[in-house]
């Protein structure tokens, strides 16, 4: 009998604990209206970074990130031009494959890409997850980063790279209307034509 009374008291205690929480404020957020602040180091979507001054791409097409990627989510096409410098023709990131491990960012010596705290890029169409260079650059334009590139390449401002970037740079206005895959194809002839 005593056990039942004890048990009953324990049951009341349990109610007390959950009852206490009734008065507490909720710890959750009302998501689309309220948003959590993402920490600086958050590894969200990958973006391509642009030069802080002239807005051109930092990427040199060195393929290091592509080689470091464990899931082969990065597709780069950067054949060597006449002066043995690589020309970035295609940079695509397949977010259906990306595992957000951050190895590409660590492999990059030119501060060309970064995993950011951005995350609201879900889509109903799987094709939209294959981002081309324009989209990657556009999303990354407002991203602040520590430029580790200057020390190494400041002496020779790799000319072909800047050229290639300039062309890509003109794109964004167009890229908004054109579908990502098409615009990626668009880049091709132009880059070649001017190179």
């Amino acid at each position: 009998m005593l056990d039942y009374i004890k048990g009953f008291i324990e049951l009341i205690k349990g109610l007390g604990i959950t009852g206490k929480h009734l008065g507490m404020h909720a710890v959750t957020l009302q998501y689309p209206e309220e948003k959590d602040v993402m920490p600086e180091r958050s590894r969200g979507v990958v973006v391509l970074l642009s030069d802080k001054e002239d807005g051109s791409l930092n990427c040199t097409g060195c393929l290091l990130c592509m080689k470091a990627c464990p899931t082969a989510a990065i597709i780069i096409d950067a054949p060597r031009g006449e002066d043995k410098k690589r020309v970035l023709k295609k940079f695509e990131l397949d977010f259906t494959l990306c595992c957000y491990c951050g190895l590409c960012e660590e492999a990059c010596n030119f501060s060309a890409l970064k995993l950011t705290g951005k995350y609201e890029y879900s889509t109903g169409d799987k094709d939209d997850l294959l981002w081309d260079v324009n989209k990657l650059q556009d999303v990354g334009r407002d991203v602040d980063y520590e430029d580790k590139r200057r020390k190494k390449v400041a002496k020779k401002p790799a000319k072909p790279v800047v050229d290639a970037n300039a062309k890509v740079e003109d794109k964004p206005a167009k890229a908004v209307e054109i579908k990502p895959t098409e615009s990626a194809d668009d880049t091709k002839p132009k880059t070649e034509g001017e190179a």
Partner: peptide, 24 residues
Amino acid sequence: FEMTCGQRLTYNYIRIGGVSKDIP
């Protein structure tokens, strides 16, 4: 964890030879 290594579930934090980032 997110503050330290940027991820919430799959950290990729402890690496061969040490850790990837120092704690903030």
